[in-house]
Deep mutational scan, measured.
Amino acid sequence: KDKDLLKGLDQEQANEVIAVLQMHNIEANKIDSGKLGYSITVAEPDFTAAVYWIK
């Protein structure tokens, strides 16, 4: 199951987060929520590491 990592990002921010996570071998998903911006989700086992790397 995926957990929400970040919400309300613009496309550039979302792409930067995806890139950082991929560099650390964390699979992440970018979801277009329309006017609400983009959300990033990661698998539950990767959540703690993902939070660490996006600081």
Rank of each mutant, 00 (worst) to 15 (best):
K1F: 10
K1T: 09
K1Y: 09
K1R: 12
K1D: 08
K1S: 08
D2E: 11
D2V: 14
D2N: 12
D2H: 15
D2K: 11
K3F: 09
K3E: 05
K3W: 10
K3R: 13
K3A: 07
K3Y: 09
K3M: 12
K3T: 08
D4V: 15
D4Y: 15
D4I: 15
D4T: 15
L5A: 02
L5V: 09
L5P: 02
L5T: 01
L5W: 03
L6W: 05
L6Y: 06
L6C: 14
L6F: 10
L6A: 06
L6Q: 03
L6T: 03
K7A: 10
K7H: 14
K7I: 13
G8I: 03
G8T: 03
G8D: 05
G8M: 05
G8V: 03
L9T: 02
L9N: 01
L9I: 07
L9A: 02
L9P: 00
L9F: 03
D10R: 10
D10L: 08
D10S: 15
D10K: 09
D10T: 15
D10I: 05
D10M: 07
D10A: 07
Q11P: 09
Q11T: 08
Q11A: 13
Q11G: 09
Q11K: 10
Q11S: 12
E12S: 09
E12Q: 12
E12Y: 10
E12P: 04
E12G: 08
E12D: 12
Q13Y: 10
Q13F: 07
Q13T: 12
Q13R: 11
Q13G: 06
Q13H: 08
Q13P: 03
Q13V: 07
Q13E: 10
Q13S: 09
A14M: 04
A14W: 03
A14P: 00
A14Y: 03
A14L: 04
A14H: 03
A14T: 03
N15G: 04
N15R: 07
N15H: 06
N15A: 09
N15F: 09
N15T: 06
N15M: 09
N15D: 13
N15L: 09
N15W: 08
E16R: 14
E16H: 14
E16T: 11
E16M: 14
E16D: 09
E16A: 14
E16V: 11
E16I: 13
V17N: 01
V17T: 04
V17S: 02
V17P: 00
V17G: 01
I18R: 03
I18S: 01
I18W: 07
I18Y: 05
I18K: 02
A19P: 01
A19G: 06
A19Y: 11
A19D: 04
A19L: 11
V20C: 14
V20M: 15
V20T: 08
V20D: 03
V20W: 15
V20Y: 15
L21H: 00
L21S: 00
L21D: 00
L21C: 03
L21Q: 02
L21N: 01
L21F: 02
Q22V: 08
Q22T: 08
Q22M: 12
Q22I: 10
Q22F: 11
M23N: 07
M23T: 08
M23S: 11
M23L: 12
H24L: 05
H24M: 05
H24P: 00
H24G: 03
N25H: 10
N25K: 07
N25T: 04
N25F: 08
N25R: 07
N25P: 00
N25S: 08
I26V: 04
I26Q: 00
I26F: 01
I26S: 01
I26E: 01
I26L: 03
I26R: 01
E27L: 13
E27I: 14
E27V: 14
A28W: 07
A28C: 10
A28L: 04
A28M: 03
A28N: 02
A28R: 01
A28F: 10
A28V: 05
A28E: 00
A28Y: 10
N29Y: 11
N29I: 12
N29R: 14
N29V: 11
N29C: 10
K30I: 15
K30F: 08
K30G: 04
K30E: 03
K30H: 03
K30M: 14
K30T: 07
K30D: 01
K30R: 08
K30L: 15
I31T: 06
I31F: 07
I31E: 04
I31H: 09
I31M: 05
D32H: 11
D32Q: 08
D32V: 06
D32M: 09
D32G: 11
D32I: 06
S33Q: 15
S33A: 12
S33K: 15
S33R: 15
G34H: 04
G34I: 03
G34P: 04
G34L: 04
G34W: 05
G34F: 05
G34T: 03
K35Y: 11
K35P: 14
K35Q: 10
K35T: 12
K35F: 10
K35M: 10
K35R: 11
L36A: 11
L36C: 14
L36H: 12
L36K: 10
L36V: 06
L36S: 11
L36N: 13
L36Q: 11
L36E: 12
G37F: 06
G37H: 05
G37T: 08
G37E: 03
G37V: 08
G37A: 04
Y38S: 01
Y38M: 04
Y38L: 04
Y38D: 00
Y38W: 15
Y38F: 12
Y38K: 00
S39V: 12
S39C: 10
I40E: 00
I40T: 00
I40P: 00
I40M: 01
I40R: 00
I40Q: 00
I40N: 00
I40L: 04
I40D: 00
T41L: 08
T41D: 02
T41P: 00
T41I: 08
T41G: 03
T41Y: 10
T41C: 09
T41A: 05
V42Y: 02
V42E: 02
V42Q: 01
V42R: 00
V42C: 04
V42I: 06
V42K: 00
V42L: 04
A43L: 07
A43Y: 06
A43D: 05
A43P: 08
A43M: 07
A43I: 04
E44I: 07
E44D: 08
E44K: 06
E44Y: 09
E44P: 07
E44T: 08
E44R: 06
E44A: 11
E44N: 05
P45Y: 14
P45C: 13
P45N: 14
P45G: 14
P45D: 14
P45H: 15
D46K: 04
D46A: 05
D46F: 09
D46C: 09
D46H: 07
D46Y: 11
D46M: 09
F47A: 02
F47M: 05
F47K: 02
F47Q: 02
T48R: 12
T48M: 13
T48S: 12
T48P: 12
T48H: 12
T48W: 15
T48L: 14
A49K: 10
A49W: 11
A49T: 08
A49Q: 09
A49R: 12
A49L: 11
A49P: 03
A49G: 04
A50K: 01
A50S: 04
A50L: 04
A50F: 04
A50T: 03
V51W: 14
V51F: 09
V51P: 00
V51S: 09
V51H: 07
V51G: 04
Y52M: 10
Y52V: 05
Y52F: 11
Y52W: 08
Y52P: 00
Y52A: 06
Y52E: 08
Y52C: 11
Y52S: 05
W53M: 03
W53F: 07
W53D: 00
W53S: 01
W53T: 03
I54N: 00
I54V: 08
I54P: 00
I54R: 02
K55V: 12
K55D: 09
K55F: 14
K55G: 11
K55Q: 13
K55I: 13
K55R: 10
